[in-house]
Amino acid sequence: MNRIDVALICKALSDANRLEIVQMLSEGEKCGCRLLERFEITQPTLSHHMKILVESGMVNDRKDGKWHYYSLNAETLKMFKEFIEKLGCICASEETGRCCR
């Protein structure tokens, strides 16, 4: 995962509403209308948040008729998790490059 990808994810997660959306999606795919019920925001504002999450690669968007369904992109989240875990490895051996844990 390159720095630009990581920066987009960090930007996407920098908003409390988007963090809550990601938590909701961790329970499974949701229709945009179900997400909107949870917040006191307008539909255009939800669309703005969803655009940022989709563009970051964290969220998949599927259209069925006039409805949009959203789900987490497991592969992107896995790569982001691996990136974050590498940051926490302050005891990496200079010889092997691996953490001593």
Rank of each mutant, 00 (worst) to 15 (best):
Asp15Gly: 04
Asp15Ala: 07
Ala16Ser: 14
Ala16Gly: 00
Asn17Cys: 12
Arg18Pro: 11
Leu19Ser: 07
Leu19Asn: 15
Leu19His: 00
Glu20Lys: 13
Glu20Met: 09
Val22Ser: 09
Gln23Val: 08
Met24Glu: 15
Leu25Met: 13
Ser26Ile: 03
Ser26Thr: 09
Glu27Ile: 03
Glu27Arg: 13
Gly28His: 04
Lys30Glu: 07
Lys30Ile: 02
Lys30Asp: 03
Lys30His: 05
Lys30Phe: 04
Gly32Pro: 12
Gly32Met: 04
Arg34Val: 02
Arg34Lys: 12
Glu37Tyr: 04
Glu37Leu: 08
Glu37Phe: 00
Glu37Val: 04
Glu37Gly: 01
Arg38Val: 14
Arg38Ile: 12
Arg38Tyr: 09
Glu40Gly: 13
Glu40Gln: 12
Ile41Glu: 02
Ile41Asn: 01
Gln43Thr: 04
Gln43Ile: 02
Gln43Asn: 05
Pro44His: 05
Pro44Met: 06
Thr45Pro: 03
Thr45Ile: 05
Leu46Glu: 05
Leu46His: 08
Leu46Asp: 03
Ser47Asn: 13
Ser47Trp: 03
Ser47Tyr: 09
His48Arg: 15
His49Asp: 10
His49Gly: 06
His49Glu: 09
Lys51Ala: 13
Ile52Val: 15
Ile52Tyr: 00
Leu53Ala: 06
Leu53Met: 07
Val54Cys: 09
Val54Gly: 01
Glu55Leu: 10
Ser56Glu: 08
Ser56Leu: 09
Ser56Pro: 08
Ser56Val: 09
Gly57Pro: 12
Gly57Phe: 05
Met58Trp: 01
Met58Arg: 02
Val59Asn: 06
Val59Cys: 11
Val59Tyr: 07
Asn60Cys: 11
Asn60Gln: 10
Asp61Tyr: 03
Asp64Arg: 13
Gly65Pro: 10
Lys66Tyr: 12
Trp67Gln: 15
Trp67Tyr: 14
His68Ala: 10
Tyr69Leu: 13
Ser71Ile: 02
Ser71Arg: 01
Leu72Pro: 04
Leu72Asn: 03
Asn73His: 08
Ala74Tyr: 05
Glu75Ser: 13
Glu75Phe: 08
Lys78Asp: 11
Lys78Leu: 12
Met79Asp: 10
Met79Pro: 01
Phe80Arg: 07
Lys81Met: 04
Glu82Val: 08
Glu82Trp: 00
Ile84Ser: 14
Ile84Cys: 15
Leu87Phe: 11
Leu87Thr: 12
Leu87Ser: 10
Gly88Ala: 10
Cys89Leu: 11
